[in-house]
Design a binder for these strands. Structure first.
Lengths: 261, 261
DNA sequence: CGATGTGAATAATTTCACAGCC
DNA sequence: GGCTGTGAAATTATTCACATCG
């Protein structure tokens, strides 16, 4: 689209596809590695390989940001690092609070990738009074009672929830009420939030289940005959219900008859 | 493609869209919760709400599995739990190894969601000799030297990498050589694997960066003064918007004049 | 030349809306 | 009457392929 008239910078960063946004951090990481090796320029082909995508996709992604390359040459590494950082909002400081300092929360607090790139762990919060004041990864844990104060005083807009699933929604509500507008949820629950608040989730169990799906399919498609090893297991049939209607239901595999329920 | 002449429908579980597969665990979780409350049936509307998606999507997703609902009524909870579990391959036992027992690896080992649903932590592996034999979450850590033996003897097909980024590829290569065909990668690196091996990644830093992107955009789009409750917060205005471009490169925001280059 | 940037083609996913069945 | 199941439309994402420019 010939931008012709700059109608208004209204079309600023507007319209960057979500799929592209999700890949920018990948490019940034690859570029940072190149930068550290003092590589001055890269081609879309090389960078794409380093980021694990194909070059057409990468070029298309970059085209949404602007024309930051040089035909016949490639991209200036430092320049791109800066542009992508800016686009992602990493040129500013983002204070983050982590709520729920159990094993996972503690691991997150100490995670290197956290501190890098403009994110700063502003506070660790836990409901256990015994934890209060105890330093984890060098940061003293504060009590949940002070959540609102911490969030508003530090201007925190990003919260990480690493609590048990049972309290995740309550914690989420409090964070949002206190002013947090982006949440990274590690608890295995669906959080409901008002419009304008973003939630992203990280769920171990879901990832494993997706892998299992593909794994199972692989086993079923092997030319010969086997399956790695599926020692007894068999999970759960289920409550009966008049099992067979006149018509067959699913593609195959009707349910076993009885189930523990 | 020798499509096994086994059953009649060559189209068995074939063709379940990836996006649908990724949501099945979500539905399963919601259904499991209903099951525990002994709810016998749910409508697509209710289940969709519990899973955080819209009902049309859910119905479409289920349509790829077969016709498991009853018009005018809804879905039988137990029946669906079983069908989805089977589709995901959760009716069999999946031994998993976790490599890299640092803070994160230890947290993963103890994570409840791990043990549930057919996944079993078969072994914890770490390169530090000082860790060997030490129990973490009740499971003794074994040394990396024995990786191949562990994987093949236990028939492990899923590996979790929680090592530092620098050794992730080496660990990955060894896992794959030993027979692992699905990998869940927590290290911030792109892993390269041969065809037939699935990799899924979980990256803290990437998720935060995506949130930051949206967060930044929100800050720039505030109409006047709204938002549920945004006390002092005020998410950092940062650099002024001055620069209007004539017809340069990017949409806006040229680099700070001098860049390392 | 060689590699970018991008329209156009294709594929995947989501949403609509309603016929069909309970 | 109510709710599923699903073609068809709409939207979003990926890939192709090549004109363009340094």
């Amino acid at each position: 689209m010939a931008t012709g008239r700059t109608h208004r910078p209204a079309t600023r960063s507007r319209g960057i596809p979500e799929a592209t946004v999700a890949r920018l951090p990948l490019y940034l990481r690859a570029l940072t590695a190149l930068s550290e090796r003092s590589v001055p320029t890269v081609s879309s082909e090389e960078l794409a390989a380093a980021a694990g995508v194909n070059s057409a996709k990468l070029r298309k992604d970059f085209s949404y940001l602007g024309s930051y390359g040089t035909r016949g040459v490639g991209y200036d590494v430092e320049y791109l690092v800066y542009q992508i950082s800016r686009e992602l909002g990493l040129t500013q400081d983002w204070p983050v609070v982590i709520v729920g300092i159990g094993n996972l929360g503690a691991a997150l607090a100490g995670y290197g990738g956290f501190a890098s790139r403009g994110f700063r762990v502003a506070a660790l919060i836990d409901a256990d009074p015994a934890m209060t004041g105890k330093p984890v990864a060098g940061i003293p844990v504060q009590h949940t009672d002070d959540l609102e104060k911490i969030v508003s005083e530090d201007g925190v807009s990003i919260g990480v929830i690493a609590t048990p699933a049972g309290v995740a929604q309550v914690v989420c509500d409090r964070l949002v009420a206190a002013g947090v507008t982006s949440i990274l949820n590690f608890a295995p629950t669906v959080l409901s939030v008002p419009d304008g608040v973003d939630v992203r989730k990280v769920d171990l169990s879901i990832e494993l289940q997706i892998l299992a799906f593909h794994e199972q399919r692989k086993a079923g498609e092997e030319p010969g005959a086997e399956a790695p090893e599926a020692p007894g297991a068999a999970a759960v049939p289920s409550a009966g219900r008049g099992a067979d209607e006149g018509e067959r239901k699913g593609p195959d595999g009707d349910m076993p008859a009885v189930m523990p329920a």
